[in-house]
Design a protein around this nucleic acid. Structure first.
Lengths: 240, 240
DNA sequence: CACCGGTACTTGACACTGTCAAGTTCGAAC
DNA sequence: GTTCGAACTTGACAGTGTCAAGTACCGGTG
């Protein structure tokens, strides 16, 4: 089904009306998604925005999912860049791990719609066909895993390590984005700040299973050395 | 805008063709979503399935998002039931917490499309209008929080506790559902089993931040008492 | 230079969607 | 038995993704 060889940029674009319509579609798609959400992204709308006919995009992407997949791949590339930059800025493996976690959440909060497309359901069902997306995604995860292995010391511990950290920041970001915390945290900028503090606290202290009764002193000490203690979640409002 | 009073079931249904078309729409919507995914859910399709005209649903839900919201609320109610049952079966608070975590992941894996609708983006943007959904969601989260408070001993520790555990299982479930682990874990039943073992391991051992060098002995002992050690993630396949 | 093949794009059409406006039918209250 | 309103139908509209056929333009070849 798939031709062997380098999957990206197999042929130089012919650049007719827009220089490179394919690239323009991906970039405009990213913009449109961030502005209005995924549901507002239409092929015809993109075509109008770029000044081409409504069927022009079909010559670069067989269907809408393929276009979404290309948009998500671009998102993953930017995501990976952000993570790598942050990892490079950390001194110790442990610091790098925490910085990556924060950068992960920050990216999700800064580009919510892109993040959801990257990890969204639509692509999971059909992504077997788009190796570009799989590769971009795996490459981003590799940043986490490399850092986790260095922080954990061993390879196998690093794998569980990386998965747990990944799941933690991923879930936290999505819970915030999806509004699941909204009854407790407002969606405004103050709510975001409180949320990021909370994530910091969890990243420093470690989640519940490790915090049972005995032996919490060292953790607490380190938490205070790594950042401010978390502000408590505000109580739910009494009335709407 | 909104009428005061009890938001749920304010009036008994008049039962014309389908006894209770509103309820039938929600149930058929749940089924259709689980069978074919959210993208395949259309108002007209539901109407055909129930043998009514294409505009009949509009008399019960002002638009498609309202219907999706009702479906998600029903999902949350079933979700909460599953969590509560599991929590009741645990002896100690800590056992309850682990059981809830496992039940959380199991629900997501058993009803992937419903789970994604429940926590999906579409509803986050408009859910200010549907108090039913907010209430159902908060009620499910309350199970987690109550258990976490009991396990943590104090109220404020319980909040961070609950959030961390929530984010962990939520993120893990979504990463699996979205296929982000697919290069490492196959999507078949063996992959699922390996994934559930992995989650168990993380729930027992605690995530990375708590597992740095010193003081890991008690954690290891408890991990072994709580379940089998995690099978290592299989190496990535060499070729597709 | 003319010619020509193929790519990038356009035009037009189709089936499908969600949503609205107006008409119809039926249950129950008076 | 009549009336009234809710539940439902019919018909229409704009908008969508996708396909088939046609057109313009660039590169190379004679």
């Amino acid at each position: 089904m798939s031709v062997p060889g380098s999957p990206i940029a197999p042929k130089p674009p012919r650049r007719r009306h827009h220089g490179d319509l394919r690239r323009a579609l991906v970039l405009a798609g990213l913009e449109a998604i961030e502005e209005l959400g995924v549901a507002a992204l239409t092929i015809r709308g993109l075509a109008r925005r770029l000044g081409v006919s409504h069927a022009a995009p079909a010559h670069h992407f067989p269907d809408k999912l393929a276009l979404l997949s290309a948009v998500a791949s671009e998102g993953f590339r930017r995501f990976e860049t952000a993570l790598r930059e942050e990892a490079r800025a950390g001194a110790t493996p442990r610091q790098r791990m925490q910085r990556i976690g924060r950068a992960y959440v920050r990216f999700a909060l800064d580009h919510p719609a892109t993040f959801r497309v990257m990890f969204g359901r639509e692509l999971a069902d059909c992504s077997q066909a788009t190796s570009e997306l799989q590769q971009a995604s795996a490459s981003a995860y590799a940043v986490l895993q490399e850092t986790a292995e260095a922080a954990a010391g061993s390879r196998e511990a690093g794998e569980v390590h990386a998965f747990a950290g990944w799941a933690l920041v991923h879930g936290a970001a999505l819970l915030y984005l999806d509004g699941a915390l909204r009854p407790r945290l407002p969606a405004d900028s103050a709510g975001r700040a409180a949320f990021e503090e909370l994530v910091d606290a969890v990243l420093s202290r470690g989640p519940p299973a490790a915090r049972r009764g005995s032996g919490g002193r060292a953790q607490k000490r380190e938490a205070e050395a790594n950042g401010p203690p978390p502000r408590r979640l505000p109580r739910k409002r009494a009335s709407s």
